[in-house]
Design a protein around this nucleic acid. Structure first.
Lengths: 345, 345
DNA sequence: CTGAAAGCGCTAACAT
DNA sequence: ATGTTAGCGCTTTCAG
């Protein structure tokens, strides 16, 4: 179909202009739907464009306009359901405005961090979405003169850059309250000294709930453990070996919770009759677990959607209504928690 | 840290040149690690670059060199584990050569197809990776003068563009043989008239195995059903309602197989004692199913790796050793198939 | 309404 | 070893 111009490379705006018998700027005007083109010229040009199957060279366009129509999304690991949902949210909102997504997974490799920082800074994209960036990365990028929005952050303070996160503290508090209200007193938490702001906060929420209820904050119940199944597993095993094991376990996230399930299963402790378990994140598989996991829902897609919308505003040079959006979490009640039996006391 | 140049926009190569007291091309030479620069100038320029925190404008670079350092990946749905693994493979091989990935999900929306075709054709990227594209899309792109590699394809013929796929026919054949060797004769297949080349082939493999074994190819055993759990579920229900239900079910993919499991579970038919089930794809959850699913492994990450490597070669203007790579599938034996008991005959 | 001229930031010849 | 000149393909003044 599409005719090829004499040269073997692709047609440029100049070729179109020549073929249509007009000047280059006129073609440009047609392409940009500008008003000052007579209907007849316009249609003639449009026809030639169609004939040639001409598509504007985006690199040239980007150079003159300063806009590439691309946005960077930098996240830790794409294969984590948590981040995947964020990606989906971002994608959905970008698609409607015709932006495309440049994806980078960092795998937390801080040594290579500068490499991608250089790349996202090279103006090949119009803005950057950063998921769970390190504080050093934020510092490096803070004065980059590029629109940036952050989703979650390592470190304990709100970043100097627009961001969106969740009410992690509330989530941690509510999860713990939920257990307390069901009579539990020996409640363990897994994920104690993680460095992400959300991990810090949900742990703080747990502590507050415990303290408010006048329950002992036994250090043995506060477990280390990163957000993986295996660390949830290991932590649970340690908890079960305690002289006075907990009757309920609050896993910092759902990945850990699967590890908790596994450990409990191996020790033949029924959930929730033997031990109650509550998670955090509400990943897709949480409802499929056996028993279905009670957990704190995180609006992951919305995280992506809000961040993308904010970034789009920034790119359009609009002022943000709010610099830091905090999305609510929600307790989803399923079947992994039971009231404490008096026998368990 | 990084000083800002007087103008409020970011520093250009010209600013660096001026500050270092050299010409613009000299800076360019330093940036490109060219030999014809004296050590002293080089270090001076490098220092200024560091001082300014200067990063090359990729758009300008792309315009002159014709290379953006980006690659398009167009796939149906990112949230499908199958495609996600391909993405990972692509990402891994791009990362080592410093290319970045532009991601587009089509969601099979053929109406919008032309929109993304225009985008991926606008020279904002150096090449395109197409996962399971429609034949129309391929036709549109075939003479686009851009490096393209296809991963899987709809339609029944090898595309006119370099591609990588899997030995679907063998997979279908081997899965069926496996069942036949275990004494099964009434073997059903789900996914009969799907239009992707791989679906076509695995069905053909099934038919050949059946015919070779002299078994009847009962049309009632050849079910429609797209590659989703719900269609696997529906097809299975229909199969079980047959006067003479099958003793083994070959699900065209693992998603369907989960639907098969569900239907069987609801009818209280034990797997594999009541009905044997075999899948296709070996998705991450297949080994977690209950019982673990025997299935045909597809090297999904490799699909992405090979395709990306080929594309990279194409971009470097190297000739491909093979235009169509076909990766082997492998039967993974787990616990969802049992020899036919004489009582079931 | 149309086109001539200039320039975006960079790299590629080609002198010097 | 360094700088001069030109140009990538497009958009944007600004005359006509």
């Amino acid at each position: 179909m599409a005719k090829r111009h004499s040269t073997d490379s692709r047609p440029t705006i100049a070729h179109i202009a020549q073929a249509a018998g007009v000047s280059v700027p006129t073609v440009s005007k047609v392409l940009n739907n500008r008003a000052d083109v007579s209907p007849s010229t316009r249609s003639r040009v449009e026809q030639v464009i169609a004939e040639f199957g001409f598509v504007r060279n985006r690199a040239a366009r980007a150079l003159t306009t300063g806009h590439s129509g691309l946005i960077d999304l930098v996240l830790p690991r794409i294969e984590d359901d948590y981040f995947l949902a964020i990606l989906q949210g971002v994608e959905q909102t970008l698609k409607v405005v015709g932006f495309r997504l440049v994806l980078t997974s960092t795998y937390y490799e801080t040594e290579e961090e500068f490499r991608w920082i250089d790349k996202v800074t090279d103006r090949s994209t119009d803005g950057i979405l950063l998921v769970l960036p390190s504080e050093e990365a934020i510092a490096r990028l803070a004065d980059a003169q590029i629109p940036i929005v952050i989703i979650h952050t390592q470190g304990s303070t709100l970043p100097p850059i627009p961001s969106v996160t969740i009410t992690s503290w509330n989530g941690g508090y509510n999860a713990t309250r939920y257990l307390i209200e069901r009579g539990h007193q020996r409640i363990a938490y897994i994920g104690k000294s993680l460095h992400s702001m959300d991990a810090l906060e949900r742990f703080a929420g747990y502590r507050t709930a415990m303290e408010e209820a006048g329950l002992v904050l036994d250090p043995a119940y506060q477990c280390e453990g990163r957000f993986t199944a295996s660390e949830g597993y290991a932590a649970t095993l340690a908890l079960l070996d305690l002289p006075n094991p907990p009757t309920a376990i609050f896993a910092g996230n759902d990945h850990q919770a699967t590890g908790v399930y596994q450990a409990l299963y191996e020790r033949a402790i029924p959930i929730p009759q033997g031990v109650s378990v509550i998670g955090f994140d509400d990943l897709p598989y949480s409802s499929l677990m056996n028993p279905p996991l009670t957990t704190i829902h995180v609006p992951r897609q919305d995280l992506g959607k809000f961040a993308a919308s904010m970034l789009l505003q920034l790119i359009k040079n609009e002022k943000l209504d709010v610099n830091h959006v905090i999305l609510p979490t929600l307790l989803i009640e399923r079947n992994s928690c039971a009231p404490l039996e008096s026998s368990q006391r």
